[in-house]
Simulated assay, not measured.
Amino acid sequence: MRILNAHEIDIASEAIKKGELVAFPTETVYGLGGDALNISAIQKIFEVKGRPIDNPLIVHINSLDMLEHVAYITEDAELLIERFWPGPLTLILKKKDIVPGITCANLDTIAVRMPNHDIALKLIKKAGVPIAAPSANLSGKPSPTSISHVMEDLNDKINYAIDGKVNIGVESTVVDLTEEKPLILRHGGITFEELKEIVDIEIFTTRDMKKVKSPGMKYRHYAPNTPLVLATGKLNDMVFKINKLIEEYNKIGENVGIIATHETIHRYPNNIKKRSIGTRDNLYQVSKNLFNILREMDKENLDVIIIESFEKKGLGFAIMERLEKASVSMI
């Protein structure tokens, strides 16, 4: 894999035009990009990631003209675009015939967004095509928030990656605009509370699922190789449960790692591997650190990782959605 800098986007855009794949930074996580209208390129994305073919891809665009080229725009879409684009918001819209079925899991809908990242926008503009880009990792693993994460997973699988910064650390929020009422299918960088100010919107539940219109709905995601246990409950009860579980694992000689917060890290034994993910007063910091800490703890030769939970409010929805997907059990 050749690592490109921000001044070498022309090399990356030419690769996209030729049907090759390029990893690139967005404001959320790193994406693995290919021409969204090129069936061969899309097939490569699924092959490289080991991604199930029925898991639709998010198509990245850089202009409203490009959006109109691939999707039918609704009134609610116009309202949300005006407020949140470019930014970490993906919209599910009815797709146009120019988009191959494989890009959208053979549905009549398309997941599309305009990233808020100079490198991503320049790459799309120079390539001259919408770019389909799931996270640039092996399917199911923690999403990549640095070029080193991309190299860990895809170093021998693609030819190019562009180095750059990621700001948010969790993926985009996905909103379905093809049903009677707007519906959040995946929580992310734009919160439910922010969306509610613009449109009358509801949160998806599993009972609503008829078709998998968005990534992150069906399969286990974001998971380290080491089993992850998610501790729930009020703060003091959660700390108590974690310490009891640590005692139980110690009795059988298993190595435990703890991912806690600044407020609680001191309440766990010093003879185990423990890391703070940030402060509960700043969930943006927590979200930015999440995938990096999961990857770092996964290298510590542990038998189990226990992580604290967060209130499902604001960005906490997005954090918890990922932890629930990544964990093998909850206590």
Rank of each mutant, 00 (worst) to 15 (best):
L235C: 03
D108A: 01
A111V: 03
K313N: 13
E194V: 09
V48S: 08
A105I: 02
K234Q: 15
I147N: 11
I198F: 12
I305L: 11
L315V: 06
A77P: 09
P86R: 05
P88I: 05
R220D: 06
T90Q: 09
K165S: 15
R275I: 12
F24C: 00
N55F: 08
G253V: 02
E75H: 14
I16G: 00
I124W: 01
D153Q: 08
P224L: 05
G189R: 01
A6G: 01
P52D: 09
Y268E: 04
P86S: 08
K125M: 15
N225L: 14
F240H: 13
L64G: 10
F317V: 06
L230D: 00
A132Y: 04
F46K: 04
D76N: 15
S148V: 14
L283H: 05
G34K: 06
Y284T: 12
I184K: 03
E263H: 01
S329T: 09
E171M: 06
N301K: 09
R295Q: 14
S329K: 10
A6C: 07
A15T: 04
E311S: 12
V256N: 05
P224C: 05
A223G: 13
Y219R: 03
A120D: 09
A136Y: 14
I265M: 02
I131E: 03
S143I: 10
R51M: 12
L195M: 12
L245T: 07
P25V: 02
D35A: 08
I168W: 06
N155Y: 15
A127I: 06
L283M: 11
K241N: 07
K325C: 10
K210Q: 05
M1W: 08
G216K: 01
P25C: 10
V199D: 04
T74Y: 10
I42A: 01
K165T: 14
G50P: 05
A132N: 02
K325D: 11
A41K: 03
L91V: 03
N106Y: 13
L80Y: 08
P227H: 13
I242V: 11
I147H: 10
T145Y: 13
V239T: 04
G278Q: 04
S309M: 00
I45F: 07
L64Q: 14
I319T: 00
H266T: 12
N116C: 10
A133M: 10
M209E: 15
L123H: 03
P130Y: 03
K96A: 01
P269K: 06
I73D: 12
Y160R: 06
P130R: 03
K312Q: 14
I119P: 02
K125W: 12
T279D: 11
E78V: 09
S146D: 15
K218T: 08
L93H: 01
R186E: 11
K96C: 01
E194M: 15
M1F: 09
H149D: 15
P88M: 07
Y219M: 08
D163Q: 12
G257S: 11
E254N: 09
H149M: 12
D118H: 14
M297K: 07
K17V: 01
A318D: 00
